[in-house]
Design a protein around this nucleic acid. Structure first.
Lengths: 251, 251
DNA sequence: CCCAACAGTAATGTCAACAATATTGAAGAC
DNA sequence: GTCTTCAATATTGTTGACATTACTGTTGGG
């Protein structure tokens, strides 16, 4: 592909998208307001890059070049720079003046730090969710974590466990209703997403995790917030222990 | 004052500062490398603005205009925009496309949320610090929180209490050695700095807080991390209760 | 054969002009 | 007198050119 004028191309694409929508002065179509599109597009690109970094599609050490990203997403270099700034503040990339941005490497010490903070914050969320949600909220999860899953895990199928865990996390955070805790946990989890996955795939981990979650869910179902919080903390502490034991496999 | 070309003025000031330092090709003076200066200057301005927002020198609702800030700090508008982006990501300002940035207003619900997260994170830091620091680390603080301070507080002098508390917080966070917890707490505390101060100034709060901190420090001195963590959580919960009771005075 | 100096290249950082949008004030219709 | 419309102005958003810096391959000397 021949090298083209990146900024010009981006501008043309935007103009095209805008002029295609208007023409009549009828209802003000908010969806094509250019400044909305810009901001949403930036958020979208940020989301995509966060995902790629989280699952190591962009492994640590990868250089993120401004022109390259600008070409791929058809936006201006200035927009890319802003996005790189956001990634830097999230701790996903390191920027050195005049040398660009590289995907940050996660040291083992930092992972342990994150586990400690997760223990505190996820414990908090479980407590708040237990207090805020109606008890029957957790019944579907008790069902999904039941004997059927135990058999599946025994046969080596861990996907139901992984999926249910993610759904439960979302529901918990939602009922906790604490935007700051949610935000901080998002920052932490997107950094350790792959680590978390690898730990869940360790032999025996899913079976142990399932049992512990059933115990936690029973406390949540009973409305015992303190016991549920303690159970959640034990779960994360346990995951940390597994990581420590199988460190060489996970890292 | 006559309106001047902001960007041009900033450029001239930078060039002048740089050319004043070189002239000989001797030792490479890193301190005048322009890109270092830029980045450091940006961080400095960010720090200044964070402070102004935290102590309501820039009260909630204040519009932050790009040209105005560029003139005050003698930097380009582009630099100001980058700084505003950082303030937005910290949740200190809200930006609406084409309408600029305004200092964010802290709702009472958000304050309660922050107290919950602080309880989890500061509790964690106290636990880690108790585990990591040599016990005699806390002796100076037990001394400073002693009878002398109790008498001072009885006479209405709360500054020693406030100062000692801040020093203790710093030392705790330092010994906790968890960069993520530290960072998150910084984000939270700069949002509620003034609230925290006002609560400490409530009648009777300093006396109660001093006693509770002595209790916590005794646990830390004894190396009882779990008891110290529980004590710290009780302190924050207590502060939250005071805020709830005197809400109309604090807000 | 190895190392240092150096020019060429590619990337990032910065800027000032330009475009698009929101706000403000005034004029006019009802 | 109040509301709507519209132009003037101020502010933010975007762009493409330019400056500065790091990287790379080459050349020359030891």
């Amino acid at each position: 592909m021949a090298k083209k004028n990146v900024q010009g191309a981006a501008a043309m694409a935007d103009r095209g998208g805008q002029s295609a929508g208007d023409g009549s002065a009828g209802a003000p179509d908010v969806s094509v307001r250019p400044e909305r599109n810009r901001k949403e597009r930036a958020e979208e690109i940020l989301h995509i890059l966060r995902g790629r970094i989280a699952n190591h599609e962009l492994p640590p050490g990868t250089r993120l070049q401004e022109v390259e990203l600008a070409e791929e997403f058809e936006v201006s270099r200035a927009a890319v720079r802003e996005i790189l700034g956001a990634l830097e503040q999230r701790g996903l990339v390191n920027r050195v003046p005049n040398r660009g941005a590289v995907v940050a490497r996660l040291e083992i010490e930092e992972i342990y730090e994150i586990f400690d903070v997760r223990e505190a914050l996820e414990g908090l969320c479980v407590r708040l969710a237990t207090q805020n949600a109606p008890p029957q909220t957790w019944d579907p999860f008790l069902e999904r974590f039941g004997d059927g899953m135990a058999e599946a895990i025994a046969k080596g199928e861990v996907e139901p466990y992984i999926d249910t865990l993610e759904d439960l996390r979302r529901e918990t955070v939602r009922w906790a209703g604490n935007s700051h805790a949610t935000h901080f946990l998002d920052l932490l989890l997107e950094k350790t997403h792959l680590i978390k996955l690898r730990v869940m795939l360790l032999p025996g981990r899913a079976a142990a995790g399932r049992e512990m979650h059933v115990e936690m869910l029973r406390h949540m179902r009973a409305g015992d917030a303190a016991a549920a919080e303690a159970a959640k903390k034990r779960i994360i502490r346990s995951a940390r222990d597994w990581l420590e034991r199988y460190r060489s496999f996970v890292m």
